[in-house]
């Protein structure tokens, strides 16, 4: 019995140490990133966020320059505005496409589709969440990009006379719109599944009451059920947005990898912050002043901050949203 107690004590200590491991990992991560990023911020200042030119400088030169006490290759300048715009624009397009489709799909799943069919359709939708991002990229290259270059793009560009940014040239199909649609498909399962779960928990009585008062069935869902689940749904949307902000591979494969250039229309090639880190790390390693590496670390810190804030906000809303439904019965 004594040895059992000791074993139990040891187990508890081991479990306690494991429980704080995420804390240590995060701390380590933050320290390394901030430490790596700091010289780039000293070198470039806030023009890092407003400049549109990313130039690692002449790496073959033997006369390094020193700016604000930081050594860099001659001609080095780091502006990431195009990457920020690319990240925000592509994720915004993803949200604009994914939210209505996901919400309407969740409505249909909860209120219209017979349960025997839901049993099959729900897993199919959730399968989307498990597909590796390179497979999405593959689909984007093989199916979506040609469709946009030859079909959707030309059709949309006719609307360009009335709506800004929709006018051509449509280009190769690799760019902002394709990235946005691929991201939309990636976040649809997140928003659909969460909204469906929330709507299923909404009590029947308010909806039946609304029907009895003369609302049509869609009105009762739209104006009674959805407001009850509203905060949770907004949380799910932001969660999806966070996913879209940080997605790397799928975007890297279909974005067209533009540099030093702000998107001119919906079909322009872009780069996002995440895809830039992936595509430039190799060449940044050849910068012997290490400044390019520091600049990439600063992108990582920026991306980390943005996605952390959105994620936390979203989780909070989802939690509050669950509570809303629980208490307002």
């Amino acid at each position: 019995m004594r040895s059992a107690r000791i074993r139990s004590r040891i187990f508890k200590v081991a479990a306690g140490v494991s429980a704080v491991s995420p804390l240590f990992v995060l701390l380590f991560l933050a320290i390394v990133l901030i430490n790596d990023a700091w010289p780039a911020f000293r070198f470039q200042g806030f023009s890092f966020y407003s400049g549109i030119t990313w130039n690692m400088g002449n790496m073959y030169a033997n006369n390094t320059i020193i700016h604000n006490g930081v050594q860099g290759s001659p001609g080095a300048t780091f502006g990431i505005l195009p990457f920020i715009v690319g990240t925000l624009a592509s994720s915004l397009i993803a949200i604009i496409i994914a939210v209505p489709i996901s919400l309407l799909s969740a409505f249909a799943l909860v209120y219209k589709v017979p349960p025997s069919l839901v049993k099959w359709i729900s897993p199919i939708v959730e399968l989307l969440a498990g597909i590796p991002s390179v497979v999405y990229g593959l689909w984007g290259i093989l199916v979506l990009a040609p469709a946009i270059a030859n079909l959707i793009g030309p059709w949309l560009s006719h609307l360009g006379h009335f709506i800004p940014y929709l006018a051509g040239p449509v280009g190769s199909g690799f760019g902002l719109l394709t990235s946005g649609i691929v991201l939309a498909v990636m976040i649809i399962p997140i928003i659909t599944a969460t909204s469906r779960d929330l709507l299923m928990q909404v009590p029947h009585l308010p909806i039946e009451g609304a029907r009895a008062l003369g609302m049509t069935s869609f009105e009762s869902v739209r104006h009674v059920a959805m407001p009850l689940a509203r905060r949770g749904i907004i949380g799910a949307v932001i969660l999806g947005w966070g996913r879209a902000l940080g997605e790397t591979m799928a975007v890297l494969m279909v974005s067209g990898n533009a540099m030093n250039y702000l998107p001119a229309n919906l079909y322009s090639p872009i780069s996002t912050m995440a895809s830039t880190i992936a595509s430039l790390l190799d060449s940044a390693m050849t910068d012997y002043t290490m400044l390019s590496i520091h600049a990439l670390a600063l992108i990582a810190v920026t991306l980390l901050l943005i996605s952390m804030i959105t994620n936390l906000f979203a989780r909070l809303l989802v939690q509050v949203g669950r509570r809303d439904i629980g208490t307002e019965v």
Binding site: P22, L23, V25, L26, L29, V32, L33, D36, G242, L245, G246, E247, T248, A274, S275, I277, A278, L281, I293, L296, A297, A300, L303, L304, S307, M308, T310, N311, L312, R315
Partner: peptide, 19 residues
Amino acid sequence: LSEVLAGVPSIVIGYFGYM
């Protein structure tokens, strides 16, 4: 903190792993 860690973009982990 686990939620925060889950929200870290995977390329940032990749950068960290490399450095």
